[in-house]
Amino acid sequence: MNDILLGLAEAARLIVSFDPELIEITLRSLQVSVGAMVIASAIGLPFGAWLAINRFRMRRVVIALLNALMGLPPVVVGLIVYILLSRSGPFGVLGLLFTPTAMVIAQVIIITPLIASIAHQAIRELWADYHDLLISLNTTKSQRIRALLWDGRRALLTASLAGFGRAIGEVGAIMIVGGNIDHATRVLTTAIALETGKGEFALALALGFVLIALAIAVNFAMHALSRTERSGRW
């Protein structure tokens, strides 16, 4: 209990003093997780929509697979990405291992199924609603997907934010592919793991509180952004 109070106090001290290291790793956390969210959304949202409006033989299998992939253990993803990006691996020549880019790649793999699955659920409902109209208007498949993505954007924002939430709190994969290198790939979660390992619970908790505050701030910011939009009233 006392540790939690100490953690809160330490968090307050770090924030008030604009601790440069804290700012650095916080920005890197944001950079990696937002990057992963943007890329994963660019893949997952259209895929979820495509899956909602298409009927094909393996559809149920694909959906079951997608739902299963939502539970991918990050450590396993990290290990696989590590092996792929390792100098001895197939993509070693790119020299991406232990860079923020590698961390983004691992997180994209982790959160894309989550984003696609939530998007699929949301779009499926909207499609049931729009089905007759869009067929009647003689739309092409890509026009349908575009209309559904645009009109479902509030629900899809939730999907993206769920992905962001998983990314920003993730440690297992980015620890392996990023390496938690000071001033290069250290982010909030890996720093928390490091400080916990040292038994520095107050500092670890302080970073944890910063992480939680950051996640909340990003969620509020995204919702505020979507609300300022003119036609965003539903």
């Binding site: 729009y130 109209l133 009647s136 003689n138 009109d151 036609s231």
Partner: peptide
């Protein structure tokens, strides 16, 4: 392309009235 359908319970897209009416032309 040359026919249209009005459903018994009209399907409203999540858009403004103007954008809903304009949608077939955009398509």
């Amino acid at each position: 392309a040359r026919q249209a359908f009005v459903f018994q319970s009209p399907i409203m897209m999540r858009r403004s009235v103007q954008d809903c009416i304009a949608y077939p032309l955009i398509l």
